[in-house]
Amino acid sequence: MRLPGWLAQHLAALRALLVLTVLLGLAYPLVMVAVGQLPGLRDKADGSLVAHGSRLIGQSFTDADGTPVPRYFQSRPSAAGDNGYDPTATAASNLGPESLDLLNDVCARSRAIGELEGVDGSRPYCTAGGVGAVLAVFRRHGFTGPVTRVVSVNETGTPFVATYDGRPVESARAGEDYQALGAVITPIRGDAPADPVVPADAVTASGSGLDPDISPAYAALQAPRVARERAMDVARVRELIEENTHGRAVNVLELNLALDRG
Rank of each mutant, 00 (worst) to 15 (best):
A80V: 01
A45R: 05
S152G: 14
L30H: 10
D105V: 12
G47S: 07
N154P: 04
V153Y: 14
A64N: 14
V69K: 08
N104V: 12
T90S: 11
S78M: 02
L20G: 10
G81T: 01
Y85G: 04
Q37Y: 12
S93Y: 00
T90E: 09
S99T: 08
D46N: 04
G118V: 02
S152Q: 15
L49M: 15
A128P: 00
D120F: 13
L41P: 03
V137Q: 11
I113Q: 04
I113D: 05
S93V: 02
A27D: 05
S54K: 05
E115R: 15
Q59A: 09
A45E: 01
S75I: 02
G81Q: 02
D63A: 12
V131M: 10
A45F: 08
D82G: 12
Y72Q: 06
R55C: 00
D65H: 14
L100C: 02
D120W: 13
S110C: 05
L30G: 07
A34C: 06
V151S: 02
D65L: 12
N104C: 11
G130P: 08
G96M: 10
T158F: 05
D46V: 00
P146D: 06
S122W: 04
E155F: 06
L41H: 10
S60Y: 02
T158A: 15
F61Q: 04
V151T: 03
P146Q: 06
A136S: 11
H52D: 12
R76H: 07
A92M: 05
P159C: 11
D46P: 00
V147N: 01
F73P: 05
V147H: 00
G157W: 05
G132N: 08
A108I: 09
G114R: 09
P39V: 07
V33E: 14
E155T: 14
L26N: 06
F73C: 07
V131E: 13
G66V: 02
A79R: 12
R149S: 07
V69D: 04
L103K: 09
D65A: 15
L30P: 04
D101R: 15
T67H: 05
L38Q: 13
S110Y: 00
G47K: 03
V50P: 00
S54L: 05
R42P: 03
P39L: 07
S54E: 06
S110P: 03
S60R: 13
L135H: 08
G25A: 09
R123F: 09
M32P: 02
A89M: 08
P39E: 07
